[in-house]
Every structure is written in C-alpha cells, then in structure tokens.
Simulated scan of single mutants.
Amino acid sequence: MLILQRKPGESVMIGSDISISVISVEGGRVRLAISAPVEVPILRSELIAAAAVNQDSAREESDPAALLDLLSGPPPSSP
C-alpha cells in the first residue's frame, strides 16, 4: 500500500488516465475528485462489501415453509 500526503488542489495519477484530486479537507472529512475512463468502475468500498454480503445471503438455502411463515407475519391478536 502506498500512503501519500496531499493538500487541497493537489492530485495523484494512477497510470496515464486516472487522476485523483483532493478538493477539500474539513475536520475528519476529505473530498476527492476522481477522473477516469467510463469503463473503469468507481465504487465506495462499503458498497462492494454490502454487495458481497447480499450475494452470500442469496446463496444460503432456507426452508421454503420457514420463509412463508416470515412473510405471513405474526398471527392476528384476538380482542
């Protein structure tokens, strides 16, 4: 892992066609601008992690009857 220090207005190049610029630093937040070709996906790491969790959940097998019970909700209460 490469660790760099940059000030607002400075940038880093990745290869010849990806540029990451520091827009601002306020408190504990850093705003970045990323310029890359449209075929390069740019995703936040937490979205990738959430997608992986969703895929893992979708692969798990569940008893169809148990799923139907969950969907039907609790039985109605009697007065």
Score class of each variant (00 low, 15 high):
Leu68Ile: 09
Leu4Glu: 04
Ser24Asp: 05
Glu10Ile: 05
Pro79Asp: 15
Ile48Arg: 14
Val12His: 12
Glu39His: 13
Pro76Leu: 07
Gly27Phe: 03
Leu43Pro: 02
Leu67Pro: 00
Ala66Asp: 07
Ile18Gln: 03
Ala33Asn: 04
Ile42Tyr: 07
Ala50Lys: 10
Ala36Thr: 06
Pro76Ser: 04
Leu71Met: 03
Ile42Lys: 07
Arg31Cys: 06
Val22Glu: 00
Ile34Glu: 03
Val12Trp: 08
Ser19Phe: 00
Ile3Phe: 01
Pro37His: 06
Pro64Leu: 02
Val40Gln: 13
Ser57Arg: 15
Arg6Ala: 09
Arg6Trp: 01
Glu39Phe: 08
Val22Pro: 04
Arg59Leu: 10
Ala66Lys: 02
Ser19Arg: 15
Ala50Ser: 15
Val25Ile: 08
Ala52Tyr: 11
Glu60Thr: 09
Ala52Pro: 00
Ser45Ile: 14
Pro8His: 01
Met1Glu: 06
Ser24Ile: 04
Gly9Asn: 01
Gly15His: 06
Val53Asp: 14
Leu2Gly: 00
Ser21Gln: 12
Val25Trp: 06
Ser78Pro: 12
Val25Met: 06
Pro41Lys: 07
Gly73Thr: 12
Glu10Cys: 05
Leu68Glu: 02
Ser57Phe: 13
Ile3Ser: 03
Asp56His: 10
Glu39Cys: 07
Glu39Thr: 11
Ile20Phe: 07
Leu43His: 12
Glu46Phe: 02
Val30Lys: 14
Leu67Glu: 11
Ser78Leu: 13
Glu26Ala: 06
Ser16Pro: 00
